[in-house]
């Protein structure tokens, strides 16, 4: 076993990221907190599922790990190397993204072959024969025919486009893939094909995934551990089985309760979150979830919940032991 096998594939320590939103002509600038003191490690070959509502900072976290944003504070390392210290080419060889919308993440004017070849060309270190060989191999691996390589993205279905995006992500043989809602834009029958493909590729190539999704049923199926994000903070992180069977944070419980499983007769659950919606530019004091929490106590609006360690993670809530 090499030395790197014992290092975590992804490691975040105290990562912060804030965006300034212009307030317009007379308004004041607002500071939107996207990541607040985020720390976690994903082991080699693991799949961390990241869940939370829109605007909670999931995608910002993905872009920080990809090196597309610099953190305001904290350290991000992949395979033991600081992301900030790597140049673009080195980063591309190690970590690659698959985005949500295969309709806008592929260049509509480029042929599929050229889209998949782009990361290889950008490295400036592969000859033409090698590029052609690798592209063919990769297209076949994700279930696309050589003939499809000559087509434009607009000539493909949503599922086929997402296969192209996966081929492009894997053609440099990276170690880590950041999947940001990879199946949200797809139909259920196609979603299952893509999830199965991602699982197969991970097993065969020993990949590590950061898997972002708002669909908890999908996350339970693919992830080995799950982090629940709320207004920029990870409020609960546990191994998948533990989180789904004994969720501890009231927000995790509410998210799980909102999953509508295809079981007739159960009706629509009351998640009890009320109408107050979270505003990342105006984070409540104390526990940031308290205005929506169905079990909040008076102290929740003033005391900041500490991280309470659990096997394989932890939970940030004042009300759990």
């Amino acid at each position: 076993m090499t030395l790197s096998a014992s290092l975590p594939a992804i490691e975040l320590k105290g990562v912060h990221k804030t965006f300034r939103v212009k307030g317009g002509l007379l308004g004041k600038d607002r500071h939107v907190v996207a990541c607040d003191d985020v720390s976690f490690a994903v082991p080699q070959g693991g799949v961390l599922g990241l869940v939370g509502e829109s605007g909670c900072g999931k995608s910002t976290l993905a872009r920080l790990i990809l090196g597309l944003f610099d953190p305001a504070a904290g350290e991000i390392a992949v395979e033991g190397q600081r992301v900030a210290d790597m140049d673009r080419k080195a980063r591309a060889r190690l970590i690659q993204p698959v985005f949500q919308d295969p309709f806008s993440s592929l260049n509509p004017l480029a042929r599929v072959r050229d889209i998949v070849a782009m990361p290889l060309k950008a490295q400036n270190s592969f000859d033409r024969g090698e590029i052609a060989r690798r592209v063919d191999e990769m297209l076949a691996r994700v279930g696309l025919t050589t003939e499809m390589g000559a087509r434009l993205p607009t000539e493909l279905s949503g599922g086929q486009r997402q296969r192209v995006a996966i081929a492009r992500a894997l053609v440099l043989r990276p170690r880590i893939v950041v999947c940001d809602e990879p199946t949200s834009a797809l139909d259920v029958s196609v979603q299952a094909q893509i999830l199965n493909l991602l699982a197969e590729l991970r097993r065969e190539l020993g990949l590590t995934y950061l898997f972002i999704s708002h669909n908890l049923a999908v996350v339970e199926h693919v992830a080995s551990e799950v982090a629940v994000m709320y207004l920029g903070r990870i409020v609960e992180r546990r191994p998948t089985q533990a989180l789904f069977h004994q969720p501890e944070h009231p927000y995790t419980k509410a998210l799980l309760a909102s999953v509508l499983t295809p079981e007739p007769g159960l009706g629509v659950p009351d998640v009890g979150l009320g109408d107050v919606l979270p505003d990342p530019a105006n984070i409540p004091p104390g526990c940031r979830f308290h205005p929506r929490c169905p079990v909040a106590e008076p102290r929740c609006s003033s005391e900041t919940p500490p991280l309470k360690p659990r096997a394989g993670g932890g939970v940030e809530c004042l009300l759990v032991p």
Partner: peptide, 16 residues
């Protein structure tokens, strides 16, 4: 095709 929490095993592929 629909993943149902608690009903599927992780190492089993989803129906598609």
């Amino acid at each position: 095709c629909v993943p149902v929490p608690g009903k599927q095993r992780q190492d089993e592929p989803l129906g598609s």
